[in-house]
Simulated assay, not measured.
Amino acid sequence: MTDKAKGPASYFPSIEAKYGRPIAEWQSLIRARQPAKHMELVAFLKQEHGMGHGHANALVAATLAEG
C-alpha cells in the first residue's frame, strides 16, 4: 500500500502533467529567484509560465518549506 501525498505535494502529479516539467525543475526556478516573498514567486509562475494560482501556490509553499 502506498501513502498518498498530502498538502502541497498532492498537486505535483497534475502540475507535471499539465505543464510538462518535473517538479525539481520548477523548484529550481523558484530557488533561483530567492530572496523573494511567497506571493511574488506565485505571481512569477503565473505571469511567466501561465500556471494557475493553486498550482503555483502549492509549488512555492512546498519549495519554501524545504528551506
Rank of each mutant, 00 (worst) to 15 (best):
K46V: 15
M39W: 01
Q47H: 14
G67H: 05
P8C: 07
I30Q: 00
S14A: 14
Q34T: 14
T2F: 05
F44L: 12
L41V: 01
A62L: 10
E66I: 04
Y11A: 13
A5L: 13
F12W: 02
E25S: 12
G52L: 14
T2W: 00
M51E: 13
A65M: 10
A62T: 13
G50C: 11
G54Q: 06
S10R: 11
K37W: 05
K46N: 10
T2V: 12
P22K: 03
Y11N: 12
V42A: 00
R31G: 12
E25G: 08
Y19H: 03
A24P: 01
F12S: 04
D3R: 11
A32G: 15
R31Y: 07
T63A: 06
V42R: 01
Y11L: 15
E66F: 01
V60T: 04
A62P: 02
P8H: 05
H55R: 12
R21M: 13
T2Y: 02
F44T: 02
N57F: 08
I30R: 02
P35L: 04
Y19C: 04
A17D: 08
Q47N: 13
K18V: 15
K37N: 02
A5E: 10
Q27L: 05
K4N: 11
W26Q: 04
A61E: 11
T63V: 11
E25R: 13
M51K: 13
A17R: 06
Q27P: 03
T2P: 11
P8D: 06
M39Y: 03
S10L: 08
Q34Y: 15
